[in-house]
Design a protein around this nucleic acid. Structure first.
Lengths: 340, 340
DNA sequence: CTGTTAGCGCCTTCAA
DNA sequence: TTGAAGGCGCTAACAG
């Protein structure tokens, strides 16, 4: 069955011309006689010739492949992001090599090794929540593989990244609640170490001080982002000595668990306690309870931007422009209010 | 910055030995002196030598890459499937090259071309709903690239595939409703051409005849799987001259839209009309309305099985076992009943 | 306009 | 135990 693929060598032999002539004819090189060109192209079609990219990649030291490493594909944020990545990549003839870290630092490291072996041209990554050692990223830099971080970004200097400014979104979210008369507002944040958590806290504090309210640290609790963690967190807020009337949650998934728990405690969702969240999940319209508003993080756009940035870096690299500046794109998050 | 990667040639030169000796030393070839071996290995480590897989791939005509083509990553079914695929692939040192067809036949074709160019070792694909021309699959076969279909499978002979037996699940789903006393049961099916639709219809008919009820074709309506299509479909059933008391929907997304429409028409969900569906979405617990039961299709398992099958085919191919049999795995679907 | 040659990095006979 | 040489498929100088 699988007859082995024809090569330009084969074509050359059959046509009694040299290999390079065939190569040039196939590439519409200017200095090739029309006659030979047509003959070559016809035979190529007849033989169903297809250039062996593996050989070309090898020869050109370029694979037209970009590695994409994400924690979980099952989260809509990431599947949207990868759509954006893929769209831009495909348009530029690149392909996407995929890896799921599952928020496991070792797995992440292993994936990076594999991608390095596969000689991907560049990498786009949202790092795992448990990655604390950044050595493998440094090694990537040493091997000259450009990396664009997005979403979850390591605390390193001189890196390229696309991020979403969660501060502005959080200010909007908190202000939204303040404008609606709430004064005691809880924040269910993610793990403390996360930059994303710090940003949310910062936004929260900014909004508070803008409204000349003093910041009460006990109103900020952390969830480990598991169902149980979120339930514990909301419990703490509901039992807070001050009467919490509104809660900002780290993301929609946390919000769902928190609201579910609150509901079970006979708390009237968005009446006794109002919820505002992040992610803007499309499932909202079908949900039993949805937050009153959610901060859109534009994952698709982030994916696009990250890819564009990476492609630009690759371009620069090819042109050998030693450019040591680090690229940053900050996308603004914004609040989306839902109709009740 | 990016100093170019060292090669075995480089190592050989520095050590004043031949390239092949280095190659053998690195591979722990039996006939290499311990001294040279250690020297080579040490220098390799020092230089941070890493074999250039692109070269090896080229040389071995194998990329350790499998192409995975799916309609939408954003559907949980597919993101689960790809998790299964990736898990198995990673364990066998393979990498996943990703492509989203977005249910667009042209895009699908284009992706396949790209993957062929990239010389993927094999392909796993759930074909787009709008793919009617199967020529590109035949061409894949001609180029000797093994393909394993899963989920959405083309109507071709002699293909390898992993599928979910939707007939059994549908029989269970319909029987579940019949046992609960329903007699006039509607089916919102997908596009007629789809094999998945045919299977559902078959299961529906089997269940009916098992219960000695006669089959009424007007109770089966089709949705194009858009929100509008599903709303139209459920409208037709709700206005049916016979009083429809239960509806089986093509999948959970269809169910959501159908239930939403029904609710707006003052129909009491799962009281006036009961819903049963497919997919078993994990979001169920947070939904306003959920079907009473859903047919689990085990996407993760399907992904695993498909990958195992593909790896086996690759193995066979390597060992040059000309085996023309076509592999099929049918996974049983089963009904999951939800607590109300 | 076309052919010749060298080489990308690695593995693998064949010789020594 | 080691070295030399060839070749995977293709591109790109360098010659004609």
């Amino acid at each position: 069955m699988s007859a082995k693929q024809p090569t330009i060598k084969e074509i050359a032999k059959r046509l009694n011309i040299s290999i390079s002539t065939v190569s040039r004819a196939l590439h519409d090189h200017s200095s090739i006689g029309l006659r030979t060109k047509t003959r070559v192209k016809e035979l190529a079609k007849e033989l169903k010739y297809e250039p062996n990219q593996a050989a070309i990649f090898f020869q050109q030291r370029k694979t037209f492949t970009i590695g994409v490493i994400l924690p979980f594909l099952s989260e809509l944020f990431f599947s949207s992001a990868i759509s954006g990545i893929e769209d831009v990549a495909v348009k530029s003839q690149y392909t996407v090599l995929l890896g799921q870290s599952r928020d496991d630092a070792n797995r992440e490291k292993h994936i990076i090794e594999t991608m390095k072996k596969h000689r991907v041209d560049g990498i786009i990554i949202s790092i795992s929540k448990h990655t604390t050692n950044y050595e493998h990223f440094n090694r990537l830099r040493q091997s000259g593989i450009p990396v664009v971080f997005f979403d979850c970004i390591p605390n390193m200097t001189d890196i390229h990244y696309v991020a979403c400014n969660m501060v502005s979104g959080t200010v909007q979210a908190t202000s939204f609640l303040l404008k609606n008369g709430h004064r005691v507002i809880g924040l269910i944040n993610g793990p403390e170490k996360l930059y994303a958590s710090k940003q949310r806290q910062e936004g929260y504090q900014i909004a508070m001080s803008k409204h000349r309210l003093k910041y009460d640290p006990s109103l900020i609790v952390n969830s480990d982002l598991t169902k149980e963690g979120s339930r514990k967190a909301v419990k703490e807020l509901l039992e807070h000595k001050r009467k919490v009337t509104a809660i900002v949650t780290f993301n929609d998934y946390v919000a769902l668990d928190a609201m579910q728990y609150a509901d079970a405690q006979q708390v009237a969702i968005n009446k006794d306690v109002c919820f505002v969240s992040y992610s803007n999940l499309p499932m909202v319209e079908y949900l039993k309870y949805s937050p009153m508003a959610s901060v859109e993080q534009n994952p698709y756009l982030q994916g696009q931007k990250a890819t564009e940035m990476l492609l630009e870096l690759l371009q620069k690299k090819e042109e050998d422009q030693t450019d040591n500046s680090s690229y940053k794109i900050i996308i603004d998050s914004h609040l989306v209010e839902y109709k009740q």
